[in-house]
Structures are given as structure tokens and as C-alpha cells.
């Protein structure tokens, strides 16, 4: 643990240094233009100082992003539309709904593929093809379709949540499917032969052998799936005219020239992704302890 602190800090320091240099380089043009307009002569130190505190910098330096993020999280009540916590929660809601849907779809498709030869030949290629279509092209269609079908009203939730969840599920079912197919097929012939000698039923060999054997594969997939679901939820907020959620926040900020807000939302999304992965990792550790995995 201790030995990893120094390298991590070094990398972070390096990134921050490059970032600051980039900020100065990209923002100095605006400073010079302003100075030229008033005919003022600026020293290098003055230019650098100005690039650190512009209202609409091309590349905001780290401390500006950090303070925008801090303000967005702490300065507003969490119910306010200006709070990043509020928008994060909207996105997390859609992410979790889509992730759950993707989990159910992925696991059931995997079971079907492992147990029925026909499905293996017919379903798997489509699942692969589905992931080659750019989601950004597909998202508007999913929004229009789910809105016109009125899925949200039927389920008693917002229409926007439904279409975002579908997009998130579309991205997250695939890693679950691939992991579960591999996991359910992981028991070797000796282990299945053993159950044959017990005259076990198909259900018993699923519940007692294949399902528990697939758990390590499932958890590896879940970490990919939860991140994919978050990307799906954010992408789902972009073309929908959504006004809430981190994706909507990023879009609004970029359209109305608020780079600080855009970067703060971006970092909020990254932090949410990290937290979601930590939660999945925690559940994995709990499961591993219950299943007696070697620590």
C-alpha cells in the first residue's frame, strides 16, 4: 500500500503540471488580445497570472475546475437545479435502472445461450453486432420509440428515465452476457461427470455447479457493465433535450460557453463512475468472503 503512494502522487503531479502548462499556453491568446485592444504591455508573469483566472478559459486550470466542482457540490442545496449532487443523482438513477435491466437481460441471455444450441448460433452474433452500432446514433431513436410507446407512463415513471435506462441497459448487458456465458461454461467435464454420477437434474447442476462457478466471471463483468451503464445514461441525456442530469449539464455548459461548469460536470461524472465501481467491488469482496475465496 505504502509503496504505491509515491508513484501515484508522481503521476498526479505530472498530470497537473502538464495541465497547468496547457492552460497557460491555450489561454494566453485571449489575454494578449485583450491587452492589444487596450494597448497595454504585459510582462510574462502578468500573462500567466491572467490565464489562471479567466471567466471563460479555453482550458480551465485545475484549481478553477476544483473550485467549480466544490461550489457545485457544497454551495447549493442538493435539491437545487444548480447543484451537481442533484444532477448526479438523476444520472445515477438512470444508470442503476439501466444496469439492473442490463444485468437481467445479460444473465438470461447467457443462460439461454449455454443451455440451448439454437440460441448459441442465433443470438450471440446479434449481441456482438448490437455493440458495433455507435450508441450516439441509436440513442435518439430509442428516445423517440420509448416516448411514443409511452413506456414511462405505463411504468409510472418519467419517460426520460425510461429511455436513458434502455440506452444504459443496451450498453451494459453485453459484458454481463459475455462474462456469464464464459462463467456458466467454466466447469470442466470432470465436474459435470460427477453430477451425472449423482443423477442430478439439470436444475440442480445449474444451481449447485454452474451458477456458483460463474460468479467470479460475473463480478469481473459487472465492473465493466456499471461503467458502460453510466456512459449510456450520460449519452442518453445528450440528444433528448434533457435539462437534468450530468450529460444535460455538460451539453448546456458547452452550448452557453461555461467551460468551468462543463469541466466540473465531467469530473463529477468521473467521480460517480469511481464510486459505482467501488460499490461493485465491495459487493464482490463480500460475495468472495461468503464463497470462501482464498484471501
Amino acid at each position: 500500500m505504502r509503496s504505491s503512494v509515491l508513484p501515484v502522487l508522481t503521476v498526479i503531479g505530472l498530470i497537473l503540471a502538464i495541465w497547468y502548462v496547457g492552460s497557460v499556453a491555450m489561454n494566453q491568446k485571449w489575454t494578449r488580445d485583450q491587452a492589444a485592444r487596450t494597448g497595454a504591455e504585459l510582462t510574462f508573469a502578468q500573462i500567466v497570472a491572467d490565464t489562471m483566472n479567466q471567466r471563460r478559459p479555453l482550458l480551465p486550470p485545475p484549481h478553477q475546475v476544483a473550485s467549480a466542482l466544490w461550489d457545485g457540490v457544497t454551495k447549493e442545496p442538493v435539491t437545487s437545479r444548480r447543484s451537481l449532487v442533484y444532477h448526479s443523482w438523476i444520472t445515477i438513477e438512470a444508470t442503476l435502472a439501466g444496469f439492473s435491466l442490463g444485468l437481467v437481460i445479460g444473465v438470461s441471455m447467457a443462460v439461454g445461450i449455454v443451455y440451448f444450441r439454437v440460441l448459441d448460433a442465433s443470438l450471440m452474433p446479434w449481441a456482438v453486432i448490437s455493440q458495433t452500432i455507435p450508441i450516439i446514433a441509436l440513442a435518439p431513436m430509442i428516445v423517440v420509440l420509448s416516448n411514443s410507446l409511452g413506456l414511462g407512463e405505463r411504468l409510472g415513471v418519467e419517460n426520460r428515465l425510461v429511455s436513458k435506462a434502455i440506452i444504459a441497459a443496451y450498453l451494459s448487458f453485453f459484458p454481463v452476457l459475455v462474462g456469464m456465458v464464459k462463467g456458466l461454461r467454466s466447469p470442466d467435464s470432470m465436474q459435470t461427470d460427477l453430477l451425472t454420477t449423482y443423477n442430478a437434474t439439470g436444475w440442480q447442476s445449474f444451481a449447485k455447479l454452474r451458477l456458483p462457478a460463474s460468479m467470479p466471471y460475473l463480478f469481473a463483468s459487472l465492473k465493466v457493465a456499471i461503467a458502460a451503464a453510466l456512459v449510456g445514461a450520460i449519452v442518453g441525456e445528450l440528444p433528448t433535450g434533457a435539462v437534468e442530469g450530468l450529460g444535460a449539464r455538460m451539453l448546456v455548459a458547452s452550448q452557453f460557453g461555461q467551460p468551468l461548469l462543463m469541466w466540473a460536470s465531467l469530473f463529477a461524472a468521473a467521480i460517480v463512475a469511481g464510486l459505482l465501481i467501488i460499490v461493485v467491488g465491495g459487493i464482490e469482496r463480500l460475495a468472495a468472503r461468503r464463497m470462501g475465496v482464498r484471501p
Binding site: Q191, D193, Y198, A213, M291, G292
Partner: peptide, 29 residues
Amino acid sequence: RAYGYVFQAAGLYPWRTIEGNVRLPLEIM
């Protein structure tokens, strides 16, 4: 269920305790 079969490898389920592994055929039966 006329016979018990012992394979070349022990093939115990890693997620079951030793007792849990011995219980496996009993649960199935």
C-alpha cells in the same frame, strides 16, 4: 445411485467447505 465415483483430481467445489462438499451428493439426493 449404485456407485460412488472418485476422479483423478479431487474436484472439490472451491466455494464450499469440506463439509459442504461432502453434503453435495446428499443435497442432490
